[in-house]
Every structure is written in structure tokens, then in C-alpha cells.
Simulated assay, not measured.
Amino acid sequence: MSGRIPSRWEERVAADPAHSTWYVERFRALTAQGTDIVGEARLVDAMLERGSRVLDAGCGPGRIGGYLHRAGHVVVGVDVDPVLIEAAEQDHPGPTWLVGDLAELDLPGRGIAAGFDAIVCAGNVMTFLAPSTRGAVLAGFARHLAPDGRAVVGFGADRGYEFPQFFADAEKAGLSVDVRLSTWDLRPFTDGSEFLVAVFSRAA
């Protein structure tokens, strides 16, 4: 761990130790208000058969993985922030929640030897990575996908990771883009889109 590169999220938490708790309480408050915070999970659920194996990559406090578990899927959630994982365990029991670095993703023996049917990476997680680890994270996604599995990644523009570079990195990592959208509710992607939702499969 000594040579590990901290993510931008970890740098933010180091600068403001209360940030993780604020983030948890923000989503708890939105849930209490009845706000729809699981649109990403509904899109992923629509792609899957019941009982599919799902990796929630950068799961945060568990809103997406928790929904997918309740929908009948086998979910593993990974996040680098132990405060967020603790909240996921409290608020969304059932999935396997793990503290871990996506750049070092290695999940043998978790009941997913054949790979995940879906990997979801939402919430701007890609933009919170250390830039030098992005390729490793995407390669980890490709490595952990089942042969017919798909990875769904969403993040906003103007957050330090340009979309063309992301697609180039994904291709280099062994992912082939199947669908490009501008929202989680399936609106088409254009050159002027301010958000990207990309669906990938493993490259042949």
C-alpha cells in the first residue's frame, strides 16, 4: 500500500474529514424526502435477468447496489471510503460491501468466478479517481466482466476527464462501447452533451 496513489476523493476527505459523513447524510435526507435517487439502478436492472451478478464500482453509501439487491440480484459493492461502506452496510444490508481501491480490483472467490453480468460505475466516480489510475480501473472492469457482461459508466463533462480521452482509455483497457447516452433515462448522446452514460462490453 506504500506506493498507492490516493484518489481525488481521498484527497478531498483528507482536506475535510467531515465530507464523507456529509455525503452519507445528504443521500439519507434525499431518501427521506422521497427523491428518486436510483435512476441509474433502474437502467442497469432493465439490462439483467433476475439473479444476475452485479459489481457496484465506487458504491458510496449503497443506493445503487442496495436497489439492485432488492430487485433480486447478487451484488458486490466496492468503495475506497470506509465511512461510505459502513453506511452502505447499515442502510442496505444484503450485498457484499467491501473497502477497496478500484485501481487494485481483484475479487476471486466472491462467488463471481465467471465474472459479473454487469458493472455499474455511477456518481462521477471516474472523475474522482487519480488520473494515473484510470486505465487500471477500466482494465479491472474488463477483467471482471463475464463474457457477455456489460459495464455501465456515467459521469459529467468539465470534471477533468474529457469524454474522447475516456473512450480511448476504455478501448485500450479492452472495452468496446455499445451505447452512448447523455442521461440515465436514455436520452441520446451528442457532441454537446454535458453528461455521458456509456455501456461497454468486453472487446472481442
Rank of each mutant, 00 (worst) to 15 (best):
S176E: 15
K172G: 00
G140A: 07
A114L: 01
V13S: 04
G149L: 10
H69G: 00
R110M: 14
G51K: 04
E40T: 04
E194T: 15
A46Q: 10
K172V: 04
P108R: 11
D91T: 05
L186V: 14
C59N: 00
G65F: 00
D178I: 13
E162S: 15
D178W: 03
G34V: 11
T127E: 09
T190G: 14
S201F: 05
P147T: 10
D56C: 03
V38I: 12
C59V: 01
R150G: 09
L175N: 06
G192K: 12
V75D: 01
S193K: 10
E49M: 09
E49Q: 14
S182P: 02
R63H: 09
H19T: 11
V199M: 12
A130M: 09
R202F: 03
S176I: 02
S52I: 01
V54E: 05
L30E: 13
S182G: 14
A139P: 05
F195S: 15
F200L: 09
R8C: 03
A57F: 03
G174R: 10
A151F: 08
G3P: 01
H69E: 01
G100P: 00
D16C: 09
G58Y: 02
A118Y: 01
A88Q: 12
W22M: 12
G115F: 06
G135D: 05
D79F: 00
E25P: 01
A114P: 03
F128T: 08
L55F: 02
T21V: 12
A32F: 04
A46W: 03
R26Q: 15
G174L: 07
L105V: 07
A41R: 00
P6M: 13
V54D: 05
D45C: 11
F166R: 11
G174E: 08
R180W: 01
R70W: 01
T21I: 07
G3K: 08
G39M: 10
A136G: 07
A41T: 00
V74F: 08
R63N: 10
G66N: 06
G65D: 05
G72D: 03
V38K: 11
R159L: 13
F128N: 09
D36N: 12
E104C: 04
P17V: 13
A142E: 02
D148W: 02
N124A: 05
G100K: 06
T35A: 15
S7P: 02
H144M: 03
R134V: 15
P82G: 04
D81W: 00
T96F: 01
E171L: 11
F163N: 02
A204E: 13
L186R: 15
A146Y: 08
F195C: 02
A113E: 15
F116M: 08
R63Y: 03
L102V: 08
D79L: 00
G135A: 14
E104A: 13
E40G: 13
I5P: 01
A32P: 03
V38W: 05
